[in-house]
Computed example of a mutant assay.
Amino acid sequence: MTSATPSQPIGLRERKRLETRAALEQAAVKIVLRDGFDQATVDAMCAEANVSPRTFFNYFESKEDAILGVFDEKLDEASITECVAASSTDDILESIMDVLFKLLGPSVSGVSLQKSRIEIIKQNPHLLGRHIAQMTRMSEQLLVAIRMLVSQDPRFSHESTDEQSATAEMLLAIGGGALRVAVREWVASGGERTNIQLRAAELARKVIEQLQ
């Protein structure tokens, strides 16, 4: 494995976006633990996070997505470029997993939030299915991000634009599958495995190496 270079610091716009997202996720988990999944409402989550329902739906499609940390904002090219720049390392698989993790979630920052979310998922296992649906909805944005990473990697510099797009699509398929497996392992471990990105990169690399 090649060593990773330090990620670039995120900009003010990205930092504000992540802070609002985190506040909504924490509020959603808190309300579900307090009121129960069926009784938890978006209005209560917004009141807890001190944001409007309109802001909530700029970040999440439903209360289920907020509980999981499934992020479904329609990102513009500038935001995607910023995310890619902050995730770029010498290891393209780790960079891809970092980008997927940032755009798809779930957020796993904070031991307390991890454990609370795992308890909610165990009581409502249907929630994990939201990630599969989300990847389909965001596939074009994810492909844009991965195409950027591929175009920056000298190993793919000889490829045409169409070939790089095809490479990005295949990497998305492999990376998405690896991320889902890593998330399932994270849930099964009770949150003990905290670096989901590196685990997902490890799983993807193992499959690729076995095929060679």
Rank of each mutant, 00 (worst) to 15 (best):
M1C: 04
S3P: 04
S7V: 09
S7R: 13
Q8V: 10
L18G: 09
R21L: 14
R21C: 07
A22F: 12
A23G: 13
L24H: 09
L24S: 08
A28L: 06
V29G: 07
K30M: 04
K30L: 11
I31M: 05
L33Y: 01
D35H: 09
G36W: 00
F37R: 15
D38C: 02
V42D: 04
V42P: 05
A44W: 00
A47C: 04
A49C: 01
A49E: 00
A49L: 01
A49K: 04
N50V: 04
V51T: 08
P53W: 02
N58A: 12
E61F: 05
E61R: 14
D65E: 15
D65S: 13
G69N: 10
D72G: 15
K74V: 14
L75H: 13
A78W: 05
T81A: 15
T81P: 00
E82D: 14
S88P: 00
T89V: 05
I92Q: 01
E94R: 15
S95H: 03
D98I: 08
L100G: 08
F101V: 05
L103R: 15
S109H: 13
L113A: 14
I118N: 03
I120S: 02
Q123V: 03
H126A: 15
G129N: 06
A133T: 10
Q134A: 15
Q134D: 04
M135I: 11
R137L: 11
S139P: 01
V144I: 14
I146K: 01
R147G: 04
L149F: 01
D153N: 15
D153Q: 01
P154W: 00
S157W: 02
S157C: 08
E159R: 09
E159D: 09
S160M: 00
T161G: 06
D162A: 14
D162V: 11
E163Q: 13
S165Y: 00
A166Y: 06
A168P: 06
M170E: 15
A173G: 03
G176W: 01
A178S: 14
R180Y: 07
V183Q: 12
W186R: 07
S189F: 08
E192N: 10
E192D: 14
T194G: 00
N195L: 10
I196N: 07
R199C: 06
A201P: 10
A201V: 06
A201R: 08
R205P: 02
K206H: 10
